[in-house]
Design a protein around this nucleic acid. Structure first.
Lengths: 233, 233
DNA sequence: CGATGAGTTGATCCGACTCAACCACGGTGG
DNA sequence: CCACCGTGGTTGAGTCGGATCAACTCATCG
């Protein structure tokens, strides 16, 4: 009973189940199951038939898309409160990307059918879904514009600022991105190669803008990164 | 009375109002107003406060996004039955892009508030919105992957194939893209310059893959374009 | 019949990718 | 506990796709 209440509290804090009455939240909770993933474990693969919809409770996941040639880009990093597997909401038959845990993660899960039923019975859930998908769509459009008009350096700066905002932890040196993040990972976000990322970060580290250890980045001077992102350079 | 019936028929054929009962469609129709745009006329500008939501009845529009430096990319072309101004559904306060008519266009319009009310009262509309936004989100993710991993030539091939599918008319020579489309327009879709598009199309015209006149393109050998899009080339 | 927007084509240049070699951790197993 | 090996990271040299710069032609329209 205590657990039910904490679960409901968690659900109330997610983007898809916000602004719901306690009664509806309880109905949502009863339909949910749990899923745990260890670091590097895959939630689902690109092309798999869509079965489930998830919400992150704790941890962090990475959504990627791969071409036939094996070229990979990172679509998004997903943290607590965010929904995973939007395809289940939209009625898309196959998952368009692969989702993998970048740290140990705990999720709530619903079947695609249960979610669509919940949305049909409770319009507020559907409205929340519209808001989330609209926001993600807009963000992706902005990234599309960015990647086709901006230089690599500016894109890397923007990617780091986004990560710092999404998953930053304030420390003495600055804002630390608090999950393991390799050069390759950053390259897949910025649409470039790990070589270029490595060179760029080395330069920034010399200027004191960032600090980096093994798969670990700290943004020291976010205002400098913001300037790089915006400046004509 | 006759007009009401034809309007309801039109609404029933749109992506956002499909699968609704006649009664609900009539309610939707009563809340609608009309808007006409001449070629080159702007429906709304990037950054404008969101007031309305639209559905295309006849004609075609282009949605673009511009950077501070004036660099522009085309987000999407919108034809009959498609929704315009998704920001009004998602509760986004400012339009993220500019929408302009590429030919004379007729739309239905609703206020943002009316649409959100309709979605709240009729979950099927909200579910349709989720499906549309989910599909567009997925398409944009795919374009993001494409632009950051594929060559310009392949992207141009893909852009032409998409346009031919969306707005193609079969003719003796092949599939004609039936609205005015300049080299610059194609460049903004493919994320390149009009110079590169011009060179590429000249080459393809030599091989009989496409035909082009002034702001006018015919795809003669779509299977060759598909091969270019996919081949390692 | 100018004027203006659209298209072509050549020459040049540069940002970023590719290829390559090497180094530094850190996790694992003997 | 330490040696080992693999993953991750750095850095240099060379190359190239496509942008940029530039000059010119050709439609279209007022």
């Amino acid at each position: 009973m205590m657990d039910s209440q904490t679960d409901i509290g968690i659900l109330a804090g997610t983007e898809i189940f916000r602004s719901l009455s306690g009664e509806i939240l309880d109905e949502v909770r009863r339909a949910a199951s749990r899923r745990r993933l260890a670091r590097k474990e895959v939630l689902y693969h690109q092309g798999d038939a869509v079965r489930n919809f998830y919400v992150v409770v704790v941890g962090r996941l990475r959504a990627t898309q791969t071409t036939e040639e094996g070229n990979q880009i990172a679509l998004r990093y997903l943290g607590p409160g965010e929904l995973v597997g939007y395809a289940a909401l939209a009625g898309i038959p196959d998952y368009p990307g692969t989702v993998v845990a970048v740290e140990d993660t705990h999720l709530f899960a619903w079947s695609a059918g249960a979610m669509r039923e919940l949305m049909g019975r409770h319009p507020q859930i559907a409205l929340n879904a519209v808001a989330v998908l609209g926001t993600r769509y807009r963000e992706t459009q902005a990234r599309l514009r960015e990647i086709s008009t901006e230089t690599v350096e500016r894109r890397i700066a923007h990617a780091l600022l986004r990560l710092a905002r999404q998953a930053g932890r304030r420390t003495a040196q600055g804002t630390e991105i608090c999950f393991p993040l390799s050069r390759q990972d950053i390259a897949e976000l910025a649409g470039t190669t790990l070589h270029t990322v490595s060179r760029t970060l080395s330069g920034w580290e010399k200027d004191g803008i960032v600090l980096s250890a093994h798969r670990h980045v700290v943004v020291c001077l976010p205002e400098m990164l913001a300037a790089i992102r915006e400046a004509a350079s």
